[in-house]
Design a protein around this nucleic acid. Structure first.
Length: 612
DNA sequence: CATTTCCGCCCG
DNA sequence: CGGGCGGA
């Protein structure tokens, strides 16, 4: 049995991130359509402003966000294109993005605006680190395909590709020399990983130039924050890698992260906008920070460096939090910014989270399928027939078109329960700390045209995933002991021409509850959903509640824990699991012992509870 | 409790 | 300026 597949929980998450920034993107889009422009001073105009211009134009004194009048005066021969229609830029951006994404092994590639891309190449790097031949680093081969060892490129693994910060780092020396030994193992490993990152970055840059005719500037580091910032050091058409040490230590002294970051103006840090920066400046200076209104865009501010902020007396997350709270500001903005100015970018967690999300999505989809089946069994009636439940249990969930809904649940609710922390004796406390979120039942769920799977997929995407995110906005380490889906707040369709119909149905439900209550498995920690093992299907049971405003169907689902031996060895666990494993094959009715599909049990039991 | 609307802020 | 996001 695999021991440690719990990737999401292990904090070996020093990622390798590449940030791409296309050089003067809008201008480059036009240049690609008309290469003659490359040699001429060329600018793109929106309204009365030069939004960007090529480097030929910059050589003649033009710059971004300059007034068109001024630009024309300074450089009369400039060629200007109108760039107010964004579609060509949008398309080019998307095209480049898709191109880059083809190289990624995972889907951790994202666009920021039209002209920036982040790519998490951690998996590629780690794969290739293991395959390096340390005796022949300078003639290494970078594998781009795990399945085809011939796909890749040659590179020199004895040095970083492109520029570094700080400049003249071990790069010149190379790894095969004695300096390698002086590097601590951890430092050396990170160095090697970033080195490989720099080579894949170099490769991708050239691919982009060759196949798409776009040059770009890239940064390589372990976070989006740092890779984006460090890339700025060498533009255009350059790349910069932020080399270790990333941690402060006795022999290496200050970390290169803070050394680099501290020199920036506080307002230059992505995520710290003008307002926030001004407040922080004011705090550090002890007086309002001066800023002279600029000509066109922004303004020249009194600069306060990240280092001054970070090292200002008593500075910490709480201080920033208090400083920045005002109506409409995000919750923990203070700690966010404290992290940022210390070079920590929490968004990297979201990459890991993505992996887990796909598993969660699978689970939710299975749950939804179960729920739909149950809803159809319990709530669909023959179009001509007003009675909700016949004498026979339907033999199949397949529905013909002569059925209609007798009632509509109006609310869809997702409930989860985190696994409570373990007691000293290894057992788990029984807690009822469930959390739930609900939304209006998406109408698609009542469709009887589409098949159940496609409906489920839509419901998951449109409703359940958003709910899940609300329930678990925290970082990746979900360890859930229960996931439950239910349809609630019944609305009966019949404009009760028969006055007693509603009451009869209500009574029926109550009787059903009585039966189900007996049948129901105890409320122990049963279903298990863990990021490390989300594949196995468990079961579904119904969960009766109050007669009025009650939930009609409820479908519970979880996955079997890998490490079951360390769990409660209670009987309930075993009962549950045996039921769980046979769930898809069939279940026995606890009253009469008849065998049937699990989703039919509830309806079948209702049959038992019908009035004589 | 969910939904709708608006505002502040950040970004390119 | 236009879009996106989060909070009230």
């Amino acid at each position: 049995m695999a021991k440690k597949e719990s990737f999401a929980l292990e904090r070996n998450d020093e990622r390798v991130i590449i940030h791409f920034d296309y050089d003067c993107f809008y201008a480059a889009v036009f240049e690609r359509e008309d290469p003659k422009l490359r040699l001429l001073p060329f600018a793109v105009q929106q309204k009365q402003i030069i939004v960007t211009c090529n480097y030929e134009a910059r050589r003649r004194g033009l710059y971004k966000l300059q007034l068109v009048r001024e630009a024309r005066h300074k450089c009369p021969e400039v060629i200007i294109a109108l760039g107010e229609d964004l579609t060509r830029f949008r398309n080019a951006s998307k095209d480049n993005y898709l191109f880059l994404r083809c190289f990624a092994w995972n889907h951790k590639v994202e666009r920021l605006g039209f002209d920036e891309v982040f790519m998490d190449v951690t998996d590629m790097v780690d794969y290739n680190v293991d395959l390096l031949n340390h005796n022949a680093l300078s003639s290494s081969f970078f594998h781009l395909d795990r399945n085809d060892p011939t796909v890749g490129f040659l590179f020199d693994a004895s040095c970083i590709s492109g520029h570094t910060f700080p400049t003249g780092s071990p790069q010149a020396v190379g790894l095969s020399t004695s300096t390698t030994a002086s590097l601590t193992p951890a430092l050396g490993k990170l160095y090697l990983r970033l080195l490989l990152g720099s080579h894949i970055a170099q490769f991708l840059r050239h691919q982009l130039e060759e196949h798409k005719s776009y040059t770009c500037t890239v940064g390589v580091s372990t976070t989006k924050l740092m890779s984006k910032l460090v890339g700025n050091l060498n533009k255009p058409r350059g790349q910069t890698t932020l080399v270790p040490p990333y941690e402060w230590s006795l022999d290496t002294g200050e970390s290169n992260v803070t050394r680099f970051l501290d020199a920036h103006d506080i307002g230059k840090v992505p995520g710290i906008g003008f307002k926030t920066a001004q407040k922080i400046r004011q705090y550090v200076l002890g007086r309002p920070a001066a800023f002279h209104a600029g000509l066109v865009y922004g303004s020249t501010k009194e600069q306060v460096s990240v280092g001054e902020v970070r090292l200002s007396p008593g500075m910490k997350a709480e201080v920033l939090e208090r400083l920045l709270i005002s109506p409409g500001t995000p919750k923990d903005l203070g700690s966010k910014i404290w992290c940022l100015i210390n070079g920590i970018d929490n968004t990297e967690d979201s990459y890991i989270k993505l992996d887990v999300m796909t598993a969660v999505k699978r689970e939710l989809t299975l749950l939804t399928c179960s729920l739909i089946k149950r809803m159809r069994l319990d709530l669909m009636v023959d179009a001509e027939d007003d009675t909700a439940f016949g004498d026979e249990v339907p033999s199949s969930e397949v529905l013909n078109t002569s059925k209609r809904w007798s009632a509509h649940p109006r609310i869809l609710r997702l409930t989860t329960r985190p696994r409570p922390p373990r007691n000293p004796d290894g057992s788990r406390p029984r807690m009822f700390n469930r959390t739930s979120k609900s939304c209006t039942m998406p109408s698609i769920i009542f469709s009887h045209k589409q098949n159940i799977e496609s409906i489920a997929e839509q419901v998951v995407n449109s409703s359940l995933l958003p709910l899940f995110r609300q329930l678990h906005p925290e970082e990746s380490g979900w360890d859930l002991s229960l996931v439950n889906l239910c349809a609630a707040n019944m609305a009966f369709a019949g404009t009760d021409s028969k006055a007693g119909a509603g009451r009869d149905i209500g009574r029926m439900f109550r009787r059903q509850d009585d039966v189900l209550r007996e049948w129901k498995v105890g409320d122990a920690d049963l279903a298990i959903l863990r990021p490390s093992d989300l594949t196995k299907n468990a079961s579904q049971i119904s969960e009766p509640e109050q007669p009025r405003n009650r939930d009609i169907g409820s479908s519970r689902h979880g996955s079997e824990d890998m490490d079951r031996s360390t769990q409660d060895s209670g009987v309930a666990d075993d009962v549950w699991n045996s039921e769980a494993e046979t769930a898809e094959l069939g279940q026995a009715c606890p009253v009469c012992g008849a065998h049937m599909p699990p989703f039919a049990v509830a309806a079948h039991q209702r049959f038992h509870s019908l009035p004589e």
